[in-house]
Design a binder for these strands. Structure first.
Length: 534
RNA sequence: GGCGGGGUAGCUCAGUGGUUAGAGCAAUCGCUUCAUAAGCGAUGGGUCGCCGGUUCAAACCCGGCCCCCGCUACCA
């Protein structure tokens, strides 16, 4: 009966035209932090990712390389997953839209929408480029004086039969849904845009078919047409959890708790996607979170700029935790952020190496050198809260007394920031409210001096300081899983690492045994967890 | 053009009416040496986009202006 709540989340599925860069990785890391946090908090998480392969561009790229489209897609799927694994992205399933299972389930969905009367045959008229073999929008036509920007040839007016999705039928319902569910589109600014769009322009029906293409999914009710790529791409989110062939799994996981996507495709997810689902008699997802983009040294990243950054290259110079920490700490997930090699070193060295890693090292060394690695007599003793000099959290000082770190407030703060995907602020909160005050506490009490005059008092100081390491490692677990584990398991804290929750961080509970160092030591010291770089 | 967001220290930002406007990083100086040449402290540095108004009091409220960014449908 105390069944675990489930948590279903997805990332956008990517075009495998080229290898993933730090922009695509930004989304996956942000999503992974959420997945890891939810697992910690007791949710049964299902985390879906995948590649979007049924587009002509993929087929073209394969041809360019002299590969069969399918072989190319499979190879790229492997390369993508190699990067995601290097970043410790804890996805549960990776969907390839070119695989037969997805296609079959996809056809079932579209057939249902067709049967429900929301797909109708019509004709599409627009500006067509014979070179590109595709229609161009009126905007492209207007911006380029009626010429194709790629081929520099005049666009021709052309009309062809097609199938329309009756998006307009859902306009009122969608507007109501957007207004009544503030959580549905996040962040707030994107929600306003999506509401504004409908209020200003309304919704028109969409052409969801393409004629005469080899690569792609055939319309079940008219094999002369393929399904336009974005329509089947969105369906990954449900075919991946069994829509069409595993009813139980699908019912268990739908609706999705959150779709993590880039801000550029917000409209697809917040207008078209809910309408598609409604047209098939399903519920809309609970939330769509549009994250920002990453720039490189202040410039937009792109092939033409020649500044596309490969995550593996950056990891190679540091490690996956450092990579995750940088982007989550430095780039606000809901907005844009910047990557620069210099800033990367700065953040790594100041916060990970100097502030966190070094605190860990000095604690371990002091305990090992002065107490043989065991703080005798601490069994059953509760740690004391330490002063919260540099923090804004905790109860306000009303009487000039020294304020102490109030763990429950800090944890609540971090927790709500994390749940709102304000990852950078969550990390900053841990540093400011836990780590920095602990370094100050060490300085103020100088256990390395105190041990000579009052070993018992010095022991108490170290005992308290180590508690900060325990708290910080728990709070940072979703961000830097490997390092957090390494720190936590360097001491004999009673609760197994796999079972720790945020609530554990909020307590300064006594432990049954004397606190001792269990880390592997070389000459009485731990190997630096974050060796300085640069 | 319309709608929305924003312009605060060299950089990234916090701060929505009330003591001399804050943090982190960067810079300079000092203390310290348990620790990953790490830590702690101090200092310098801001016309809070511009102009006007409301108020005893405005970065914060109101009006005008300047600048930047996002959205403005098939670029998945």
């Amino acid at each position: 009966m105390a069944e675990k709540p489930r948590w279903f989340q997805t990332t956008a599925i990517d075009y495998p035209n080229s290898r993933p860069h730090i922009g695509t990785a930004f989304e996956k890391v942000g999503a992974d932090v959420q997945a890891r946090y939810r697992r910690m908090e007791g949710y049964e998480v299902f985390f879906l990712m995948g590649n979007d392969e049924n587009t002509l561009k993929v087929a073209d790229r394969a041809k360019e390389l002299g590969e069969e489209p399918q072989a190319y897609c499979d190879r790229m799927a492997g390369e993508f997953q190699q990067v995601w694994q290097a970043l410790d992205i804890s996805y549960d399933v990776f969907i390839q839209t070119s695989h037969e299972r997805h296609k079959q389930c996809c056809r079932k969905f579209i057939q249902k929408v067709y049967d429900n009367g929301y797909i109708t045959k019509g004709s599409y008229e627009g500006w067509y480029c014979p070179g590109c073999e595709e229609f161009k929008s009126d905007k492209v036509h207007a911006d380029n004086a009626g010429q194709c920007p790629n081929h520099k040839r005049p666009l021709v007016r052309r009309s062809e039969p097609c199938y329309y999705f009756k998006l307009s039928a859902f306009q009122d319902r969608l507007l109501k849904h957007l207004k009544e569910n503030p959580e549905f589109v996040q962040p707030e600014s994107r929600r306003n845009e999506m509401i504004g769009f409908i209020e200003a322009e309304g919704l028109q029906d969409l052409n969801i078919s393409r004629a005469g293409e080899e690569w792609g999914i055939r319309m079940p009710f008219d094999p002369a047409f393929t399904i336009y790529v974005w329509f089947d791409a969105l369906l990954t989110y449900i075919t991946g959890i069994g829509y069409g062939d595993d009813e139980a799994l699908f019912r268990k996981n739908w609706p999705a708790d959150v779709h993590f996507i880039g801000k550029d495709i917000t409209r697809f997810h917040t207008h078209i996607w809910p309408a598609m689902l409604w047209a098939a008699g399903e519920e809309a997802p609970r939330q769509v979170f549009s994250h920002g983009f990453v720039t490189v040294d202040g410039s937009k990243m792109g092939k033409s700029m020649g500044n596309v950054k490969d995550p593996l290259e950056i990891i190679g110079k540091s490690n996956s935790d450092a990579y995750r920490y940088y982007f989550m700490r430095e780039c606000p997930f809901p907005s844009d952020g910047d990557y620069s090699g210099q800033r990367y070193e700065e953040v790594y060295n100041t916060e990970l190496a100097n502030n966190f890693g070094n605190l860990f090292s000095r604690c371990v060394t002091l305990i090992t050198k002065n107490y043989g690695g065991v703080l005798g007599g601490t069994a059953g003793r509760s740690p004391e809260a330490m002063p919260a000099e540099s923090t804004a959290a905790g109860p306000a000082a009303s009487d000039g007394q020294v304020r102490l770190i109030h763990l429950p407030s800090v944890i609540n703060d971090v927790r709500s920031l994390l749940e709102g995907c304000q990852y950078n602020r969550a990390i900053i909160s841990v540093v400011a409210n836990i780590l920095t005050p602990t370094n100050q506490y060490m300085e103020a009490n100088a256990p390395w001096k105190l041990v000579k005059t009052d070993p018992g008092a010095a022991k108490r100081v170290l005992f308290n300081a180590v508690q900060s390491l325990r708290v910080a490692s728990i709070l940072l677990k979703p961000f830097i899983p490997r390092s957090a584990e390494a720190i936590y398991t360097s001491f004999n804290f009673p609760k197994p690492w796999a079972e720790v929750r945020y609530a554990d961080a909020a307590e300064l509970a006594a432990q049954p045994d004397d606190l001792r160092v269990t880390a592997e030591l070389v000459d009485g010291k731990v190997k630096p967890l974050f060796p300085r770089i640069g």
